[in-house]
Design a protein around this nucleic acid. Structure first.
Lengths: 139, 139
DNA sequence: TATTGTTATACTCTATAACTATA
DNA sequence: TATAGTTATAGAGTATAACAATA
């Protein structure tokens, strides 16, 4: 739990370097492709009403735009602007650099840790949503 | 990072079962013994002004009281009430039960993970505050 | 009828700055 | 002068409930 907390703080610190709140940074990382706002709410595990505010702030900074969906006129897709894509890339890179966690581990230890964490991810994902273990979520 | 996030969410979920915000739960866990409010701010890594509000809410629920320090009349110690001690114990227990992370690992894997995480804790603690490397990181 | 996104409301955490009472 | 705690203020995330447009 202490390590998890340290990782979370490292994430916050990196996000803050880009003047992003944790929620904004997480939303930005989700947007490799455009996504419906409801999907973002699901992935962020928060109520849909929050996404309105987060999207507003990202829009105000010129990082995303709201595009209408062609299939369903109720949904709006959040899509990165050019600036948003650039910032997302920088953020992603900074996050992979800032890894205090593995700093003191030798290559063998890192590999072992990676293997254990992968196994945990698989287990937790499977126990949470057995049906979508292979990762698609339509409708 | 995904695992760290899952651990954080598990923490939040358990805290919510006791109607505690994450910050309130963290403060409660810190209070095995009474602590000056400034120390709590340090441990929570937040500004001292926040501790006033957190302490207010914990006080309103009858979980803590503010006691004057005998050494320095400026400082107030946050001390658990009987009810606070009881709740802290339950919370602590619930947290050790709720460990989705290690659920799917066999004993040998758990031991390996524990060893690696301990090493990380030591490394990170040492790089952040070299003077107290052998110190107080016990929960 | 149900769902998507918005709005209004309220609560909590967060930091900054100004204040008090001590030191 | 400096520190501990408070207050006031402001911004952000969070949830709930009600609403319009659409399905």
């Amino acid at each position: 739990m202490w390590v998890a907390s340290a990782v979370g703080q490292a994430f916050e610190a990196v996000a803050a370097r880009f003047a992003l709140s944790p929620a904004q940074a997480r939303a930005l990382l989700l947007l490799a492709d455009g996504l419906p706002m409801s999907t973002i709410a699901d992935r962020l595990r928060c109520d849909a009403s929050n996404v309105t505010g987060i999207a507003d702030r990202l829009t105000a900074r010129g990082l995303v735009t709201r595009e209408p969906s062609l299939r369903d006129r109720r949904v709006k897709l959040l899509v990165l602007t050019g600036e948003g894509q650039r910032l997302r890339k920088e953020l992603d890179h900074a996050l992979s650099e800032a890894s205090p966690v593995v700093a003191g581990l030798d290559p063998a230890e890192r590999a072992t840790l990676q293997r254990l964490l992968d196994k945990i991810v698989t287990n937790v994902a499977a126990s949470h949503c057995p049906s979508q273990a292979s990762g698609d979520r339509r409708r």
